[in-house]
Amino acid sequence: MHSGDADPKVVSELARSLLALVRGESCGECLPCWHGIRQISAVLDKVDNGSPVSAEELAAVGELARTVGQGAKCGVGRIGGRLVLELLSRYSSVFQARV
């Protein structure tokens, strides 16, 4: 993923569409993937539609993404978690707390 100047709309749209792929593949068996991807999606939706997002929520997203990325049972959740971590670190300007 390149890390040049990013259009926030494009980045959050990208995050959402990538996670949608993961959601579609998640089997529902292992807990971090099941809960984590769902919870992360909920926060990213807020980023995407301009709703208020707290710093705690974003911190939680990071922690969940790490947990899923390292601890999910199979590659589906692991890739999902790592994608989110990658996006968070490369486009920190997009994922800012908003009151």
Partner: peptide, 14 residues
């Protein structure tokens, strides 16, 4: 420790 706690938190969220 963080991963275990995050997992429990996820379970508790539902």
């Amino acid at each position: 420790r963080a991963a275990r706690r995050a997992t429990v938190e996820m379970i508790l969220s539902d």
